[in-house]
Design a binder for these strands. Structure first.
Lengths: 189, 189
DNA sequence: TAGATCTTCTAGCACTGCTAACCTAAGGCG
DNA sequence: CGCCTTAGGTTAGCAGTGCTAGAAGATCTA
C-alpha cells in the first residue's frame, strides 16, 4: 500500500514535471519548440517515457496544459471584477482577459487553437471551461441569456488574437477596451 | 521577347497552379496535408520546383493564398451590404463575414493565423487587407473612428473562430449576429 | 552546330511524432 | 533466501516533414 502510493506519487510528480516543462518551453520558444525529444531532455528521461504518462502524445500534453489555463483565466477575471458592476465590471473583465492572453500567449494558444471539443455555454462542458465562461457571464448582469456572453467572449478572443498578431494599433488598446465596455456594459433589448 | 514572355507566362501559370493546388488541398484536408511533396505531386513536378517559384517555401505559398482571401472577403462583404445602413448593414456584413469564414475555413485560417505583418487600420497596410478593413468600417457610418471598426472586427474574428472550434452553440448563430448588430448598429458615445 | 542558360531531377540532410523490442531493476511469494 | 513476474526505462528505427546541393537534361542564343 505504502509502496503502491509511493509509486503513484512518483508517477504523478513526473507527470507534473512533463506539464511544467511543456508550458515553460512553450512560453519561452513557442509550441513548435515543444518536441518530444526536448521534453524528454528537460525531465531527464527518454522519449518513450512521455507516452507512458500521456498516451495521446503531444496533443494530450497540450490539452492538459490548456485546461489548467482556463482555471487560471477564470481566477484572473474574477479577481479583477470583484464587486464591480456595469461598465466598470466589463472594463475590468476585458482588461484581465486581454492581459492574461498577452502575458501567456502560448498558453492561450493551446487553450483555443486546440480542439478541446466542448462548448462554453453548455452544462456538461469541462468544468474548467464552464468556470471561465461563468466568470464572464457574471459581468453582464441578470436579464441576459448566454448569447450575450458568447458575443462578448468572441470580441475578447478576437481582440486578443488580432492584437497579438499585430493587426491592431497597439496605442489604441485602451480605446478598444473602452469601446467594448460601452457597448456591453449597458443594456440592449 | 516573345520567347521571354512565353517563358514568363509559363512560369506564371505554374505559379498559379501551385497556389490553386495549395488552396484546394488545404480546403479539402487542412494545411497539415499541404506538404511540399503533395503539392509537387499535384502539379506534376518534383519538390525543388516549388522553391523556384516561392523562395520562402510553404510559408510564402500560404501567405500568397491568404492575401487573395482578403480580396475575396472584402468583395463578399461589400456585396452583402449594398446600400443598407445601421443595424441592417451590420447584420449583413456580419453574416457575410461569418459565412465566408465558415465556407473557407482553411483559407480563413491562413489569412489570420499567419504573421502577415500588417495592421488593418493603417495606411501602408497591404492593399488587400486595407480594402477588407474599409468594407467593414463603412457599415459603422460616419462619426466613428477606426477604433470601433477594430472592435467590430475583433468580435467577428473571435466569433468565427469559436464557432468553428465548436465552442459556441450552433443553434444560436442567428441570435449572436442579432446581438452583435444591436450593439454595433446604433450609436454609442 | 556549339555553347550558355535555364529548368528539372536525384539524392540526401536534419528534423518531427511515435512505436516495437529488449533490458534492467524492483516487488511479491513459496 | 532465491525465483519469477512486472513495471519502468532504454536503444533503435519507421515514416514522414521542410528544405537544399549538385548533377543531368532541355531549350534558347549566337
Amino acid at each position: 500500500m505504502a509502496e503502491a502510493s509511493a509509486r503513484a506519487r512518483r508517477a504523478a510528480e513526473r507527470r507534473q514535471q512533463i506539464l511544467d516543462a511543456a508550458r515553460t518551453v512553450a512560453e519561452a520558444e513557442g509550441w513548435a519548440a515543444v518536441t518530444s525529444r526536448r521534453l524528454a531532455d528537460v525531465i531527464g528521461y527518454t522519449q518513450p517515457v512521455l507516452y507512458a504518462h500521456f498516451a495521446g502524445g503531444k496533443t494530450e500534453i497540450m490539452r492538459t496544459v490548456a485546461l489548467g489555463g482556463f482555471t487560471e483565466l477564470a481566477a484572473a477575471m474574477r479577481g479583477a471584477v470583484g464587486r464591480k458592476t456595469g461598465v466598470r465590471a466589463v472594463t475590468a473583465v476585458a482588461g484581465a482577459y486581454l492581459d492574461f492572453a498577452a502575458a501567456h500567449p502560448s498558453l492561450y494558444e493551446a487553450m483555443f487553437q486546440l480542439p478541446i471539443d466542448a462548448r462554453f455555454a453548455q452544462e456538461d462542458a469541462e468544468t474548467e471551461l464552464r468556470s471561465a465562461f461563468e466568470a464572464l457571464a457574471a459581468v453582464l448582469g441578470d436579464g441576459h441569456d448566454e448569447t450575450a456572453t458568447e458575443v462578448l467572449w468572441s470580441a475578447l478572443h478576437g481582440m486578443s488574437l488580432l492584437e497579438r498578431a499585430g493587426r491592431m494599433r497597439p496605442e489604441h488598446h485602451a480605446n478598444r477596451v473602452a469601446e467594448l465596455a460601452a457597448r456591453f456594459g449597458s443594456d440592449h433589448g
